[in-house]
């Protein structure tokens, strides 16, 4: 049994310790919003926050999570009210939407660390793949979210 803290709740899971966190979240815990894209940490579809840091979970054995607090897309906000989600709605960022949980978690982690990122900062932080080519709107969305967050503070 491993103990995990996910979206503010503590839970025990009975899985092989080498199971990637992604599959524990999706299949054992039932949080399917975090998605599988490549299995090699290359695409970012599986990004969640570990103690606030954007982390790719398809290559992270669950036994390595330790006591870190896990936040998934489901835990980012209860009602799409996070500034990144609000900006994503304003700009209709998603197309197929499959990568967007990961994109949003990466963007939210960037803004938590750097509330007013430059284009260069966004270039460095946002390495997730989007096959629909929503990159232009993701960039605009992050700038917009930065403004929304500043307004609410």
């Amino acid at each position: 049994m491993l103990t995990l803290k996910v979206n503010g709740r503590t839970m025990e899971v009975d899985v092989e310790p080498d199971t990637p966190l992604l599959w524990v979240l999706r299949e054992t815990i039932g949080l399917a919003g975090t998605r599988f894209g490549c299995g090699q940490g290359l695409c970012g579809a599986c990004t969640v926050h570990l103690d606030g840091v954007a982390t790719r979970t398809c290559v992270l054995p669950v036994s390595d999570v330790g006591t870190a607090e896990i936040t998934t897309i489901e835990g980012l906000s209860a009602d799409n009210c996070h500034p990144v989600q609000q900006a994503w709605i304003e700009l209709d960022v998603p197309q197929c939407g499959y990568c967007q949980s990961g994109q949003i978690m990466a963007a939210a982690a960037l803004l938590a660390e750097n509330p007013l990122p430059s284009d260069a900062d966004i270039d460095d932080a946002m390495t997730n793949i989007c096959r629909c080519g929503t990159y232009g709107r993701i960039r605009k969305g992050i700038h917009r979210a930065a403004r929304l967050a500043a307004r609410t503070q």
């Binding site: 919003g33 998605r35 799409n80 989600q85 994503w88 709605i89 960022v93 939407g97 967007q100 949003i104």
Partner: peptide, 15 residues
């Protein structure tokens, strides 16, 4: 606005 956006940013859309 797209009808599918809210579910696609909450993780709730079913693929």
């Amino acid at each position: 606005p797209r009808l599918d956006t809210p579910a696609k940013i909450s993780g709730g859309a079913i693929y």
